[in-house]
């Protein structure tokens, strides 16, 4: 409890908007996956996106990042269109989205985080390698740098993905379920890195499934179920009312009492 209240004191919001989403609507077929989403994410928050399966959480992130093409709506990053601000944004996809039997090493994957700033054709050099090694050290994976990625455990693979995003040295981090399928040790290691990012003034947006840990890990939350249900500080809006609206069942935040 003590730690929780302490957590809520730490973030100091600059009042600048890191991400602004307007009227975002996305559909795969006829039924919209996301309907008319307006979202303002202030700089420096550590935000969870929560909602049931099929609520469009991953879709929201992918649409913001331009991986999916929305039917309508616009996204701006620090007041400018996303296309012009790519270098400010890093992405951690779901671990299951790639083939881990790909012939490459942990260090190589982390190096990919430098490709964006390198641009076309230029090869990574000593400077990029150094940055990648530093990121590996930050996630506690330096000893595994030459490992073939299929020989890493699920938690280690997740850390490699995190390191790849850290190398991008972005201002805003989007992460799709970074805690999925990792053990307690890795979960703690990851959340500590996320909190460090926030301390450094970065904005971190995380698709999250475990409602129990929301108040402990995050200071900002967005409830999503096709439509945006609510968004704001955890201490103000993480309550039974919003949970019920989002999940449709009478949900009680038992751990808070």
């Amino acid at each position: 409890m003590k730690e929780q209240s302490q957590n809520k004191e730490t973030p100091t919001y600059s009042g600048v908007l890191a991400v602004k989403v307007d009227d975002l609507t996305v559909a795969y077929n006829y039924k919209p996956v996301l309907w008319d989403i307006d979202l303002e994410i202030p700089e420096g928050v550590l935000m969870a996106i929560v909602g049931p399966n099929g609520a469009g959480k991953s879709t929201l992130i992918k649409s913001i990042l331009g991986i999916l093409k929305p039917i309508a709506g616009s996204v701006s990053i620090y007041g400018k269109p996303y296309d012009k601000q790519r270098k400010l944004v890093a992405y951690v996809p779901q671990k299951g989205s790639v083939d881990w039997d790909f012939p490459t090493t942990a260090l190589d994957v982390v190096m990919m985080g430098t490709y964006g700033s390198l641009g076309w054709i230029k090869r990574p050099k000593q400077k990029e390698k150094k940055a990648a090694l530093e990121a590996l050290e930050k996630v506690g994976m330096l000893a595994f740098k030459s490992r073939q990625i299929s020989q890493l455990s699920g938690g280690q693979q997740q850390r490699i993905f995190l390191a790849r995003a850290l190398v991008q040295n972005a201002s805003i981090y989007f992460m799709d379920e970074p805690f999925q399928g990792v053990d307690a040790t890795t979960e703690i290691a990851i959340i500590n890195i996320l909190k460090e990012l926030r301390k450094a003034g970065k904005t971190v947006i995380v698709v999250h499934h475990d409602l129990q840990t929301v108040p402990e890990y995050f200071d900002w939350v967005t409830f999503l179920n096709v439509k945006k249900i609510a968004t704001g500080p955890v201490k103000d809006i993480f309550n039974d009312d919003n949970l019920t609206k989002t999940y449709g069942i009478n949900y009680k935040v038992s751990i808070q009492e």
Binding site: K62, L65, G66, I67, R86, K87, V89, Y91, P93, S97, V98, D99, F102, T104, V109, M112, Y115, G116, L118, W120, I121, K122, R123, P124, R164
Partner: peptide
């Protein structure tokens, strides 16, 4: 285009977010 081929093969969505 070695670097670009490699990253596209491994993680196409991520490649897109890097601006390629």
């Amino acid at each position: 285009f070695w670097k670009e081929f490699k990253i596209l093969l491994f993680d196409a969505d991520y490649t897109k977010t890097l601006g390629f």
